[in-house]
Each structure stands twice: as structure tokens, then as C-alpha cells.
Design a protein around this nucleic acid. Structure first.
Lengths: 349, 349
DNA sequence: TAGAGCCTGGACAACGTTGTCACAGCCGGG
DNA sequence: CCCGGCTGTGACAACGTTGTCCAGGCTCTA
């Protein structure tokens, strides 16, 4: 009596391309399922001899534990998510690398994605990561309303925001001191004799951009300088428009003699524009960038420490996970002014 | 008779901090488990009225599907892994961003990690990703033996290597034409009159480094120039030693009049060294980098297209997954010489 | 040598989801 | 009025692992 296909409990080709499971290993080694589990996890209570047999079977079958099942059972995924603005932005390289290092030190993997500065995409990404049940989330906000994360946080997903604060929820935040940095940078220009100082920055709906603008205003006010109508350019971000904004400030009857650039992309564009002018215009940029010291003159910058931002955030995340359940806090890291020449040029009319 | 604790089927605080499950949603909506599943997955066959009730329950409880369980059941994780050398290296930013974009277009998440150029760490990472049952793997090799991936590939994990070839296994590979690029770059220097040309590159055990060296030798040989003993520096990689190597080539009785730099980190260091010398030395670097055009002179480079590398690799990966099960192939992308000044300087003794 | 205690190993349920299948109710045609 | 099919719904098993618990065999002591 041949067995019919019907009578065989279907094992439909095991969709991971037919991977061996612990059951298979157990059968081959002639031991129980749990014993294999113990060997795989290095749990005690297995005779050396049994262990060897199991190891051989694992080797022979090419078994690798299925972490999905493990996660389902244990509830911890040993992975954290990172939502950033753009993986390709050099500012975020060291930041994510630092997050990764800390994560690795805690035995976690890093899952990440770019929001491309789009709030909807940020939300979509963050929630997808939550559906994977990452243990924690490091978010560089694109949007300004993060209430959508409330149920997740309540459900125990650790969360830290970096570089920009969270919107409308109470959460851990790690920031650079954008206000103070910008104020110092502008004050530096003022100290070198400038009065007509331009500011080019990102959209003020971005917190850091707003803070830097505030720092600019504060420094000007401290020096008793009234800000000219045409000295500020807000919300321009693509190179062409930054270029236009810079040209505008540099022309007219009373052109600026110095420019403060709100982030490194703006700085670089401004450097290009200034290279085309004969008049020497002073420049201080927010954010350091590679080769800033090699240009002539070197570019004076207000430097953040992206690696430290990332490290601090990630460490805070794992503190949350360790249960040292601190109340949400706002951590501001100091910036550092690096004088390289461009910020020390005297005014030239 | 009060129920005793024993008699209650244990629901031990549900370790995801107590997340609602489909069961909870079903109970609340007064429907069956499977109906909730149907609603969540947008499957047909649910009355609008029932669907509304379920949606309300989902909303009220803050339910989010547990993808771990889903993965366990379905066998596809909708995520791919990327093992790269260093997240913080600007060369890999656009590459990983491109992989991410393609991945996203296919509805997959990206999990990544840095090997830090350490073969063991590469293996550890790749296997950890396999244990998570990523659907596919994009690897920038650090090591030169990838046989450890054989069981995984057999088990159905799609795999593509980028930037450097796989070692000792037959797999898809996407590369830049390092040999041709280096040959062209060196030929460019020769065309501008140089005969004594130095080469500073990475360890020849790295395939790209070896290929670039080969390109250098080929160009020199084509021009009938015998390579001087002191003209080559291989395997130096940290800035201090690159600096030393450059200084060595630039001193002595017959110093080089031009340098070919094997990758962008070397190029940048060489730029720094040359800036300290009065003698004008020509320079061509492999890899483009931001601001190369702003330096004086601008730096002539052999440019790769990292985004295209990443995109090509990721697309190939998803082709493997789609089942258009092409045989492993080696794809070489062309490089492009960008003349900016430093490579066109005439020899100066 | 019997009993207590320890050590090794295995049976079984549970994690939260989805695929399979069956069933109830309804409709229209014969 | 009956029957076949169609539609919406739910019960149940299975995915691969780990935690719990118990059994059997061993050693050690009285």
C-alpha cells in the first residue's frame, strides 16, 4: 500500500529555500530538540560527548538558527532602528557610525533608513521599524509632530531623538547647541570688525535652523546692530537658490562684508560663489567639513561633533533599555569655533 | 469558589511591554482572529461594516502587526542586509543610499553594518544577517574568502558583492574598472610630460588596490618607462604613513614629478603634503571627492560612480529574488577622468 | 543497599501570525 | 421547494524557537 501524497503531513519545501531546523539537527544527532537549543545557545547541562554530536550535525547540515522564531519567542530583537535624514550626507556618516558602534557593543544590529527630509516618510519608516519590534529607535526628525510614536513608546520601544527635538511629545533629545554656536560664530565676525553680516539658513520650521537664526539675531542685538532687510535668507536649500541669495546680499548699495552660513551645504555653495568674486568677504559656516582647512583661505566654522551626538544618543537609548528608566531629558552638546582664516578677514567695502 | 492563580492560563505580561495582538483586537471587535488578519492585510472578503468595527478596535488599542511572527509564518522578511566597510566613509554614503532606494522601491528595509575592514567582523555580520533571514545580502568584501556564505546562498539568500570581488566562491559581482581607470589616469600624467610618477595605494590584498597598481604598471609599460624602486608605496593607509611615503618620493636625487593616489583618503593626504611644498607636483587621484574642484589647483581625479555601483548591485539582488535566476556575472562599470588642473601641471624638476 | 539529591535530556506548550478548510446563510434556477 | 454555488466568517494547525517541567539514571551518604 503506497503512501499517497495526501497522507504525508505537508512540509511544503520549507520556504527558506529548505533550511534545516533544530528538529532536523536533533534527528540527525539522535537527541531531543531542546538539547540542540541548549548547545546552540551555550546553555549548561549538556555532556561534552552529546555536545560534540550536536555540533557535528549542525556542521553537516549547515544549520543556522532562525532568529525570527527566536525573536517571536523571546520578545527582544537585539536590533535598533535609526531613522535619519540622508545616509549620503557626510554629516550623518560619523553619526550613524557612532550609533552602530554603541549598538554593536550591546550586541544589537542596526536597521536604518532615510526620510529624505519628508515627514510622512519618516513616520512610515519609524512605524515599519516598530512593526519589526526593534528594541529601540534613534530618530533624526524630519517632521515636527511625533505623537504617532506615543503608542509605541508606551508599548516599551525606547526612543531617542537626535540633532533636532521631538515634536509634541516628551522624549529624550540630544542636540548640538545651535543657538550658542551661531551666536558665537556671528560674534566672532563682529569682533573682527564686521557690521553688515548676512545669514543664509534652512527653513525655520527645522528647529536647528530656527535656533541658528536666533543665535544670529542675538549676536547682532548684543552688538547693537540693526539687521538689514536684505541680509537674511531663510528656507533656501538647493544650491542654485543659495547662490542667488548670496549674490543678492553681495550686491546693492550696502552689501554685506561677511556671511554666516547655516549648515555645511550652504557653506560649500557660498565658498563657490565667493571664489568668483574679487572682493574678499568673510565667512563662518555652521558644521565642519572635510578639507575646510585646505581651501585658501581656510574656512572658519562652528563645529559640531556628530560622532558624539550619535554616541550620546545611542548610549541613552541603551540606558532606557537597561531599565535605568530616567525621565526624558534634553541634552545639549557644545560647539567649537575653529578659526581658519575665512572668518578673520577684515571688512572690505 | 474563587479562581486560583493556577487556573488562569498564564499570559505573562506579554513581553513587548504588553502590546495588543490580533487576538485582542478580535475580542474587542467581536470577530474572529482571521478576520482581523484579513483587515490588516487588506485581503478581500470582509463586509464594510465588519471592517469598520475591526479598524476601530485597532485604533483604540494601538495595535500594530508583529512582523516577527509574520516573517516566521511567511518566510520572507522583506529586508536586505548591507555589509560595508565603513558607514562614515563618504564614498559609501551614496552607495548605501542607492541600495536603500532600490530596496525601498521593492518594499524592503535595509539592515546594515560596518566591517571596519576586518574579515572576521565581515563574516560575523553577514552571518548575523543570515540568521535574521534577510532575503538578500549586498556585501562590500573585507576578506578574500567567502566560502562561509555557501550554505546560505544554497539556502536561498540572494547575494551580490560590490566594489570588490568575492573570494573563492562564484557569485554576482559589481565593480568599477579599477585597472582601466588607473591606467587612464597614469597615462594622462604621461601625456602631460611626466616620466617619474609615484604610486601610493592600499594593501594589494585588497582587490581594487591590486588592480589599480596593475593599471599603473600597465600605463608605465605602455609608455616604455621603467618604474623606479622608490616610486611605489603599497599598503600604507593611515595618514601619517601616507605622508611619510609621499615625502620620501618627493626627496632624493631624482624625485617624482607626479603622484597617482590610489584612493580618496590617500589623495587628500597627498594634497596636504603638496600644499607644504613649493615645487609644483602633478596629482591624479582615484575616486572623486567633494570640493575637489574648489582647491587650487583643482584636483584631477578618476571618478567612480558609487551611487551607480549601489544601484546596479541592488537591482541585481532583486532580480535574483524575482527568480530571473541569472547565472553569476561580473559587471564592471566604467570610470571617468575629470581634469581639474592638478593632473595637467607640467613636470618641474 | 536504600534513599536523597543531582545531573542530563526530552515532551510539551507558547510566542503572534497566516494558510487551509469547513460551515452557515443566502441567492437564483430548475 | 430543493439544490448547487457563492460569500463572509471562524476554527485550527503550522512556522521554529525557547521556557517549564518532569523522568530516568547516576552518585553519594547513612
Amino acid at each position: 500500500m503506497p503512501e499517497t501524497a495526501r497522507s504525508i503531513p505537508r512540509r511544503p519545501e520549507n520556504r527558506y529555500g529548505n533550511r534545516p531546523t533544530m528538529k532536523d539537527v536533533a534527528a540527525r544527532a539522535g537527541v531531543g530538540l531542546k538539547t540542540v537549543s541548549r548547545v546552540v545557545n551555550g546553555e549548561p547541562g549538556v555532556t561534552p560527548d552529546t555536545e560534540r554530536r550536536v555540533q557535528e550535525a549542525i556542521e553537516a547540515l549547515g544549520f543556522r538558527r532562525n532568529d525570527s522564531a527566536r525573536v517571536l519567542r523571546k520578545g527582544r530583537t537585539a536590533s535598533i532602528g535609526l531613522v535619519l535624514e540622508d545616509l549620503a550626507d557626510p554629516f550623518y556618516g560619523p553619526l550613524s557610525r557612532a550609533v552602530e558602534e554603541v549598538s554593536r557593543a550591546h550586541g544589537s544590529l542596526l536597521i536604518n533608513g532615510s526620510s529624505a527630509e519628508d515627514p510622512d516618510r519618516e513616520q512610515e519608516l519609524a512605524l515599519a521599524l516598530c512593526a519589526r519590534r526593534v528594541d529601540g529607535l534613534v530618530v533624526i526628525p524630519a517632521g515636527d509632530d511625533h505623537r504617532y510614536l506615543e503608542p509605541e513608546i508606551r508599548a516599551g520601544i525606547a526612543t531617542v531623538f537626535v540633532d533636532r527635538p521631538a515634536g509634541r511629545i516628551d522624549a529624550d533629545v540630544v542636540l548640538s547647541d545651535s543657538f550658542g554656536g551661531a551666536r558665537d560664530g556671528v560674534a566672532h565676525l563682529i569682533a573682527h570688525g564686521h557690521r553688515r553680516i548676512g545669514f543664509i539658513g534652512d527653513m525655520p520650521r527645522i528647529h536647528t535652523a530656527a535656533e541658528r537664526l536666533r543665535g544670529y539675531r542675538a549676536a547682532m542685538e548684543d552688538a547693537g546692530i540693526a539687521v538689514g532687510d536684505a541680509w537674511m535668507s531663510l528656507g533656501v536649500t538647493d544650491p542654485e537658490r543659495v547662490r542667488g541669495a548670496a549674490e543678492d546680499m553681495l550686491s546693492g548699495p550696502a552689501p554685506v562684508t561677511a556671511i554666516f552660513a547655516g549648515n555645511n551645504r550652504v557653506t560649500v555653495t557660498v565658498v563657490r560663489v565667493l571664489a568668483e568674486h574679487t572682493r574678499r568677504v568673510a565667512l563662518v559656516g555652521f558644521d565642519d567639513f572635510e578639507l575646510a582647512d585646505l581651501l585658501r583661505p581656510g574656512i572658519t566654522v562652528v563645529a559640531q561633533d556628530p560622532a558624539r551626538l550619535g554616541r550620546t544618543a545611542a548610549e541613552r537609548l541603551f540606558q532606557q533599555l537597561d531599565g535605568s528608566l530616567l525621565t526624558p531629558e534634553r541634552i545639549e552638546l557644545p560647539t567649537r569655533l575653529i578659526a581658519r582664516g575665512s572668518g578673520e578677514l577684515p571688512p572690505e567695502d
